[in-house]
């Protein structure tokens, strides 16, 4: 799993490439904490290259949403692949996260 970031105005786009499972999710958790330390408050998680997510990965995203909400920030998601979308829908996470078709749409929606 690789993480890459780019800044679009005040919105940070974080792309996940690969699998978000029990093994890799601590790295996403550490990255979110690092971004929050850097005072980033608006995050789009670009999932276009996210091929797999398990409940361990969902937990880290939920934790991120809680942390950001506590400091007045927001996190949203974009560009799901089919199976990842199904897992999000089944877990009810679409009620927690705003999900956009593309990261550009997400950035526009947050700006």
């Amino acid at each position: 799993m690789e993480l890459s970031e780019s800044l679009s105005g005040k919105v940070l786009v974080l792309s996940i490439d690969g699998k978000l499972d029990g093994n890799t999710c601590p790295r996403l958790d550490a990255k979110i904490l690092e971004l929050m330390d850097r005072k980033v408050r608006s995050i789009v998680v670009d999932c276009s290259r996210l091929t797999y997510v398990s409940s361990a990965g969902l937990r880290v995203l939920l934790q991120a949403a809680k942390r950001l909400k506590a400091v007045g920030g927001t996190i949203c998601l974009s560009s799901f692949q089919d199976q990842v979308r199904e897992v999000f829908e089944l877990s009810g996470f679409e009620a927690i996260f705003k999900v956009y078709d593309t990261s550009d749409a997400a950035v526009a929606g947050m700006s």
């Binding site: 409940s55 361990a56 937990r59």
Partner: peptide, 9 residues
């Protein structure tokens, strides 16, 4: 809660 999802999924 942050847990309890895996089995359900």
């Amino acid at each position: 809660p942050v847990g309890g999802l895996g089995i359900y999924l």
